[in-house]
Design a protein around this nucleic acid. Structure first.
Lengths: 228, 228
DNA sequence: GAGAATAGGCTTACACCGTAAGCACGTCAA
DNA sequence: TTGACGTGCTTACGGTGTAAGCCTATTCTC
């Protein structure tokens, strides 16, 4: 009895909070941000919302639908390319904004590349990028290739970076630890690299814009019809 | 009794086949290639080998160890950069070889970017790439950035391609199907792109070498000290 | 206002997962 | 001969996604 009324109160409280798809998606994103995508189970997510796992299924079709919703939610955080500036700068800013989002949500890159993403935010993002290059005179084919090259760099770079197990400020001391794994007789160049990092002559940090600018500069030359 | 002796026979047969780490890794790679990485469970893998799941643990520490072994096994398939040719061509061939391997084993990209890979094959691969650029006069820092940019493209491109749900020869008809999802009033450029593919003026296929050559050409300019 | 339909919680149950614990047995060294 | 070891096995546990169906508060229809 007492238990029952307690349950009812809980239920009422939950209802006043009006559980809905957006609340669930926000909680899922927060949980994945804080504890990693592996910790995101339907049961744990429900727990953070004070409900039971199966109740989630009234608002999302299944876990895949949940993940799709999460992806579109964070994709909406990406700045669209500006329309009033040169295409190269617009795409550069768009790429950096995307990369910043992916570092804020380290689980997102993997989800984006491993599923079909046709949520409204992703469509708008793709459409705006294509529009930016079309306005600059690119053919559909060249624009397609350009966007694919840039996106490959965005996802590849952030995946490598997000999953790298060592913090950037600890590279030097980590390299020192790993040095015994690189005998000069077998891996001379890996060893040389490690020694360079230990000495401080090379930070070991990779900049997103290094590869990005190689690609953008190359595209600009193509657009201008340079013979290289 | 009969059952028991049958069991013993099975066991003897299994023993004559001499289960070992390499046999297991080969079976795991084959299973992942044929049925996808999600179908690779310890139980299913054991079944294909005619043994019980727990027997695998005599040869691999745990599932992570199994995955690490699989990764290093397929990384060994990558051609190392040749030493007797220009660095640009050597790295180009290495990148193409890596991409071909990753398309043969579509599960591999995801594993490589999402775990620490310090198996012997991966170390040899990294060492050879660094050696190739060092021999060409690159500083450690520039070589590091160059390799990171190329690897980002390799993994990003293959991940996007492997997980794209439509076969290349079906792009045109698929675009026709998806056209209603792109109302011209909301997604004009995505719609234009789809119409271009439907018309056959653009295949919609993205070439790995497009982005790769942008990066390599850019690196060559950097190496030559061009002012752009 | 009465009764039906619906929405959105809930419990229970199932098949699958990775793997800890420990048993059974064949092989081999001392 | 005996004991240790290697390598198979069974059992069991806590986790997963989710199908099926129950319960009740709200909303719609007459």
């Amino acid at each position: 009895m007492t238990e029952n009324s307690a349950k009812n109160r809980t239920k009422s409280a939950a209802q006043t909070k009006s559980l809905n798809r957006d609340t669930i998606l926000n909680a899922a994103v927060a949980l994945a941000d804080e504890r990693g995508i592996d910790a995101l189970s339907m049961r744990k997510l429900a727990e953070t919302l004070g409900i039971e796992a199966m109740s989630l299924y009234n608002h999302v079709k299944n876990k895949d639908d949940l993940l799709d919703g999460m992806v579109d939610m964070v994709v909406a955080e990406i700045e669209l390319p500006a329309t009033n500036i040169h295409w190269k700068l617009a795409l550069r800013q768009r790429a950096i904004s995307a990369q910043e989002m992916l570092l804020r949500h380290p689980w997102a890159s993997m989800l984006i590349v491993s599923r079909i993403n046709i949520g409204p935010a992703m469509l708008r993002y793709s459409d705006a990028s294509m529009g930016c290059l079309r306005a600059a005179g690119f053919s559909y084919a060249l624009a397609d290739h350009a966007i694919n090259a840039i996106d490959s760099h965005i996802y590849g770079f952030t995946l490598l970076k997000s999953n790298f197990p060592i913090e950037e400020q600890e590279y030097a001391q980590a390299a020192e630890q790993f040095l015994p794994m690189f005998p000069a007789s077998i891996y001379p160049h890996a060893r040389g690299w490690a020694e360079e990092v230990i000495s401080g002559r090379h930070s070991g940090i990779n900049e997103f814009t290094f590869g990005l600018d190689l690609i953008l500069d190359g595209l600009e030359r193509l657009a201008n019809g340079d013979q290289s």
